[in-house]
Structure formats: structure tokens, C-alpha cells
Simulated assay, not measured.
Amino acid sequence: MHIKTTKCNRFCLVASVTSLDVFHRHEAKTNFESLFRSFDPEVQFHYFRSFRRVRISFSDALAAAEARLRLHKTDFNGKEMRLYFAQVVPRLEPPKPEKQFLISPPASPPVGWEQSNDATPVINYDLLCAISKLGPGEKYELHTATPTTPSVVVHVYDSDHDEKSRPPRPKIIQTRPRHDNLRCLVRRDSEMV
């Protein structure tokens, strides 16, 4: 069986009050506070009406313990009152920085880093000359085939030949609307109304 242990604030009690008179009527509030002032005259009260709880802060831990022993499960205004020591809520801390990864690049380059020069482009002037001499529909072999590699051949695109092989596109002729059809549509709309 697992027992959950929590740290308690020895100076603070939480009263579970089922009687709503403590939150609404001044007389009930003063009667409630007088019960705890008999143990500690410097006691402070914090009312949480929506939770039906009252936080009672004592200046002495022994006074808080004695109030809990004597007043827990006692009758107040015809209802049972329960008292608990307030739990200490641990503060959340940010995670340890052992595995923090940078999302963006660093603001400055690392020590010893030098920018590399871009390589000059390689221009094959023989290839450019041969392509410029080609006419539409001709081909030029760049690499001859070997037993282990295929040949590389450049074919020049002929746009005139491509247009001649396609059938001509049909033209869309704009027609005028007939007035008889419009009158018929107007009559149908007026009949529907």
C-alpha cells in the first residue's frame, strides 16, 4: 500500500465550512472568528466563499495544533466543521540547463571560422559552340556509348514542327442571346412568385 506524504504548514489551518452563514452574515462570521481567537489573538482569516473554505493563519504552531485538536469535527451553526493543516505547495523551478539546445544559429561565427570563396563556374565552350551551330530538329552527341555507359545526345526542340503536328484549336464563337428565350425565363420567374 502506497502512502502519499505531503508537507503541511504548521501555522495554517483550512476550515471546511458547510454553513454559508459564515460568508453572508456578520454575526456568524464574528462567532466563527471568536472560536479561533481564543487560541491565538493575532490569528488572520481569509474567506473563500466559492470553495466554502476559510484559511486560518496562526502566529504560533502550537496554537494551530491545539485549535485543530479541539475544534475538528465540531458543530458550528448546526453543521459539522472540519479542520485540516494547509499543504505546502512546492515552487516550480525552470529545468536544469544540461540539455538546452539552440534553436537559432549563433549570433557570431565560431572562433577560427573563415568564409570560403565560391568556386568559379566551369563553362564548356566547345559544348556551347556546338549547340549554337545546331538548327531546329538536329541532334548532337555529347558522349559516345561504351560497353558500360550509354551515349548522351542533345536534341534541339523545334517549335514549328510541334505546332504543325497538332490539330488546330476550335474557335469559340460568341452568340447573341435570343429575346424569345429571355421572355420565357422572365415569365416563368413571375409565375413562380
Rank of each mutant, 00 (worst) to 15 (best):
I3A: 03
K4S: 12
N9I: 01
F11A: 08
F11M: 07
S16R: 08
V17Y: 04
T18Y: 03
V22C: 01
V22R: 01
E27N: 14
A28H: 07
K29W: 01
F32T: 02
F32Y: 11
F36Q: 02
S38C: 12
P41V: 06
E42K: 13
E42H: 13
R49H: 12
F51C: 02
F51D: 04
R55H: 08
S57L: 15
S57K: 15
S57P: 00
S57H: 13
D60Y: 04
L62I: 06
A67G: 01
K73P: 00
T74E: 06
D75N: 15
F76R: 03
N77K: 15
K79D: 08
M81A: 03
Y84Q: 02
Q87D: 12
P90I: 01
E93S: 06
P94S: 06
P95K: 08
K96T: 08
P97C: 03
E98I: 09
E98S: 12
Q100Y: 15
F101R: 12
L102N: 14
S104M: 13
P110M: 04
G112E: 10
G112Q: 10
G112R: 08
W113I: 04
W113M: 09
E114C: 09
S116M: 15
S116N: 15
N117V: 15
A119S: 15
A119Y: 10
T120V: 12
V122N: 11
N124I: 09
A130W: 02
I131A: 03
I131D: 01
K133W: 04
K133G: 04
P136F: 05
P136E: 05
G137P: 01
E138D: 15
E138H: 10
Y140H: 15
L142Q: 02
H143N: 00
A145M: 05
P147T: 02
P150V: 05
S151G: 13
V152M: 13
V154H: 06
D158L: 11
S159Y: 05
D160E: 15
H161V: 07
E163D: 13
E163V: 13
R169D: 03
K171L: 14
Q174W: 04
Q174T: 14
P177C: 03
P177I: 09
P177Q: 04
R178I: 01
D180H: 04
D189A: 13
S190R: 14
E191S: 10
M192E: 15
